[in-house]
Simulated assay, not measured.
Amino acid sequence: MIRSVIAISASLLLIFFASGCTDFVEPNQLAFVLGTAFDHDEDGQIEISHQISIPSQINSSSKGSGSGESDGYIVMSAKGRDVLEASQKIQKKLSRRLLTNHRIIIAISEEFFSKNEVDKLFDELGRDPANNQRDITVMIKGKSAKDFLMTKHPLEHLSSIAAGKELHINGMKSYSTRQFIIDSIAEEHRAFVPVLQIQNTQVSRNKKDPMAVLSGYAVLNNKLKIGGILDDIEGSQTAWMSGKDGIRVLTIPWKDGKGNLSFRLTHLKREISSVSSKDPGQIVITVKAQAYLLENTTQLDMSEVSNLLEVQKHLNDQLREELQPTLKKVQNWGPDVFGIGAYLHRHYPSWWRTHKEDWDANFKQINVTIQANVGLRSVGATGGQIKRRK
Rank of each mutant, 00 (worst) to 15 (best):
T382A: 10
I48V: 15
N307F: 06
L309C: 00
A145P: 01
S70H: 08
S277L: 13
L224Y: 09
Q324E: 09
E166N: 14
E156L: 00
M211L: 14
Q237H: 06
A372M: 08
E166K: 09
S159A: 14
R96N: 08
I181G: 06
N367R: 13
S350H: 09
L300M: 15
Q318N: 13
P349E: 06
L293Q: 02
A130N: 12
N221I: 06
Q299N: 15
L13G: 06
G44H: 05
G281N: 12
K356T: 11
R134W: 07
G243Q: 01
I136Y: 01
A342R: 10
D23N: 15
L250N: 05
R353M: 09
K356C: 10
R389H: 10
R270M: 11
A186Y: 03
Q202S: 11
S378R: 11
L196A: 09
T369Q: 13
G44F: 05
W240E: 00
S114R: 13
P335S: 02
T251K: 12
I140T: 05
A130H: 08
D82S: 09
D128Q: 08
I161Q: 12
S184G: 07
V305D: 12
F263Y: 15
E187D: 15
K120W: 07
K146I: 03
F122R: 04
I182D: 11
N170S: 12
V219T: 09
T238A: 15
K364N: 09
P27R: 06
F112K: 03
R3F: 13
A191G: 07
N170H: 12
V284I: 14
K120E: 14
M302S: 03
K329F: 00
P55A: 06
A361Y: 10
E69W: 00
G68S: 05
Q324I: 04
L13A: 14
R205C: 00
D119K: 15
D245Q: 10
F24K: 13
G35D: 04
K89H: 12
K92Y: 13
L300Q: 09
N221P: 06
S60L: 10
F112P: 01
S350I: 12
I340D: 00
W359N: 07
T36P: 00
M211V: 15
A145Y: 02
K288S: 08
Q45C: 03
A86G: 08
S19P: 02
I386T: 15
G66A: 12
F38H: 02
G164P: 07
E69P: 00
